[in-house]
Amino acid sequence: MTGSDIIFYLLATLCVVFALLSVTTRHIFRAAIYLLFTLIGIAGIYFWLQYEFIAAVQIVVYVGGIVVLIIFSIFLTQQTGEQLPKQKLDRKIFAALVVFAGFALTMVQIYQHTFIETDEIAITPTVENIGKKMLAVDSGGYALPFEVISILLLAALIGCIVIALREKKNIEPQIQDDTEEHKGIV
């Protein structure tokens, strides 16, 4: 086993262990943090594969974005020190079965798939190449998926604003009432 292999197995164990911890812990905030470590581990694997750009994007999007959002929603809804309720045994078994089924399906797919070797020279993942591929409109270009995803994100953003605006309306009259009450005393 070379040093490179050791690093891969370390990263892989890190990912799996933290993924397991993340679904088994009863502290919701810890679950988010374990998820974070899993994602960092995956970024580490990308680095190990020398796909630095994808690794960096993994960190920017998942660690800097998604996990921060998850943590924020925990802040806004949960209390420190509270534990999630214990799940019933049948639920646990069901969840484990579903996970196992999903895992099995993936593995079967991977083993049945015949990976074709190509003679084409692999594109080096430099920033320039990635950028060109991302905006290419010919076959194998990613312009359409890129645009579809951005529309999805736009929709999500608008949805957020709508939700935030609705809440504000409920609060404002309350404050106004208070000031009016005081004016009445005067």
């Binding site: 905030f29 943090i33 960096a56 920017v60 660690v63 974005g65 996990v67 925990i74 920033v127």
Partner: peptide
Amino acid sequence: NIGVLFVSAVSSIMVISILMAGWA
């Protein structure tokens, strides 16, 4: 080859430690 992106990506983990400290 993504040096600058690496810095801005990794520095975004910084906020996690602050959030963690604040919550815990």
